[in-house]
Every structure is written in structure tokens, then in C-alpha cells.
């Protein structure tokens, strides 16, 4: 394992039993993702994309193979240890935002810090900082239903960032947004990557994937192609 690899998958498989039938969602994945990479994982439905995202996010454990995340071997961890890893190492951004509807933007962003055991004052200042980072300093006390879709996804990104995770894991982050807002959200990801954040994007939309610097395509539970993107969309504006 190289120092630079923040994610290392070796021979990862994941099988399910469905109606007595054994289904191989992942059929042996070997993959390394380095620090500050910006990777898109693509594939048609049924390719194992979602399972891949769940395994990468430590929401699910592989049937076999090994998974190192930032130096921890997480493939053999028990539930509560995985919860700790998710809390410290992973920032999730979901397609449906998954904000708590009755909590303000600020409370939503504070949530990972609550589970990290951070004190109330520090929690608040870090949540405010994260919201300011995504351009929502003015809307901290609004509830999700008082925010637009793009703003909700910004809150979700702030929540993902607030505990300074080693990877930002986004699952179809623009799936519920119009194209203008999508561009806006993808710009945020580009900026975060430019600042040194490792970003893993799971998507089935090729033009979204083109924002990444590397695209991994899955097919039938295996890596089909793994290529560099020559001119990522929005890379120039991110540097500027």
C-alpha cells in the first residue's frame, strides 16, 4: 500500500441472497484511490455501483476481500466501529439530501460533530464555518423546507465536510437538481477538490462524471474501464 492511497480495495466481493438465489453485486474489485484524487464511479444500473458506494462508505461490509481506508482495515470491522469510521473518515452527500426536516441548517450540519462528541461551542463555530464555506452563512437558521434544492444540497455538503473527513462520498449529488443548480453544485465539488479534498462521486450521468479527473466504470460487478480525464469540466474555474 502506498502512502498516497487513501482507499485501497483488494479482491472485494459482495454477494446477496435474494429469493434463494445468490447474486454477486461485486465480483472482485481491486482499486486504489490516492489522496486528493477526484474520482467518478460510473456504470449502468445493476453494475454494482450502489453496492460499491455502500462498501466505500462503510455502510456495508464486503463478503470477501480487503478494504483499507486511510490506514484502517475496515473490511472486518463490527457495526459500531464502522459507525466511528463513517463519522471520522467519510462525508456523505446523497441524491435526496437526507437532511433532518425539523432541524435548522445549522443543527443538521452539527450532527456529525454531536456523534463525534465535540463540545457545543466548538460544534457551533465549526458548523457555521462549514456553512459559510458553501455560501450559506445567511441561511443557517432556516429549515430544509425553507431552502431551495441547491441550498439543501449545499447544507448537505457542509454537513459532509464539517468533521474534516478523508473522503467526500457523493451519491448522485445532482440527481434531484435542475441543470443550472447541478453546475453550481459541481463547482462546489471542484473547489473542494482544488483545496485538497479527496472526492468520490457515484453517478450514472456522463457529463457529471466529466467533472472528475478519473472515471472508473463498473460492469457486472467488475471494473470495466479506469481512465484519466484529460480536461475535466470546470477545472480551470476551480483553480481561478
Amino acid at each position: 500500500m502506498t502512502d498516497q492511497a487513501i482507499i485501497r480495495l483488494a479482491g472485494i466481493t459482495r454477494e446477496y441472497l435474494m429469493g434463494g438465489e445468490r447474486i454477486r453485486a461485486l465480483a472482485g474489485i481491486d482499486l486504489e484511490i490516492g489522496r486528493n484524487e477526484y474520482v467518478a464511479i460510473m456504470g449502468p444500473s445493476g453494475s454494482g455501483k450502489s453496492t460499491m458506494m455502500n462498501v466505500l462508505g462503510c455502510l456495508d461490509t464486503p463478503s470477501s476481500g480487503q478494504y483499507w481506508l486511510n490506514g484502517h482495515e475496515v473490511s472486518r470491522m463490527a457495526d459500531d466501529d464502522l459507525a466511528r469510521i463513517r463519522n471520522r473518515e467519510i462525508g456523505f452527500v446523497f441524491q435526496t439530501f437526507n437532511l433532518l426536516p425539523r432541524a435548522s441548517a445549522l443543527s443538521n450540519v452539527e450532527l456529525p460533530l454531536v456523534y463525534a462528541g465535540t463540545g457545543a461551542r466548538e460544534r457551533r463555530s465549526r458548523a457555521e464555518e462549514a456553512l459559510a464555506r458553501v455560501g450559506l452563512a445567511e441561511r443557517m437558521h432556516h429549515r430544509p423546507n425553507e431552502l431551495s434544492g441547491g441550498q439543501r444540497q449545499r447544507v448537505a455538503i457542509a454537513r459532509a465536510l464539517v468533521n474534516r473527513p478523508s473522503i467526500l462520498l457523493a451519491d448522485e449529488p445532482t440527481g434531484n437538481l435542475d441543470s443550472a443548480t447541478s453546475v453550481e453544485i459541481m463547482r462546489v465539488f471542484g473547489e473542494l477538490h482544488a483545496e485538497g479534498q479527496t472526492v468520490v462521486l457515484v453517478t450514472h450521468e456522463p457529463d457529471i462524471a466529466e467533472h472528475a479527473h478519473r472515471v472508473v466504470v463498473l460492469r457486472d460487478g467488475r471494473i470495466d474501464t479506469d481512465r484519466r480525464v484529460e480536461h475535466p469540466v470546470g477545472a480551470a474555474s476551480a483553480v481561478a
Binding site: G57, L59, D79, D80, A83, R84, R86, N87, R88, F92, N98, L99, L100, L111, P112, Y115, A116, R159, N163
Partner: peptide
Amino acid sequence: TREIGVRKALGATRRE
């Protein structure tokens, strides 16, 4: 259920 899923994704343990 969804809220529980989100909390778990953000790092809540069973005990929490």
C-alpha cells in the same frame, strides 16, 4: 427509518 439511516451514516452507534 430514513432519519435513523442518516444518523447512522453520519456516525451514530447503535447505543446512540
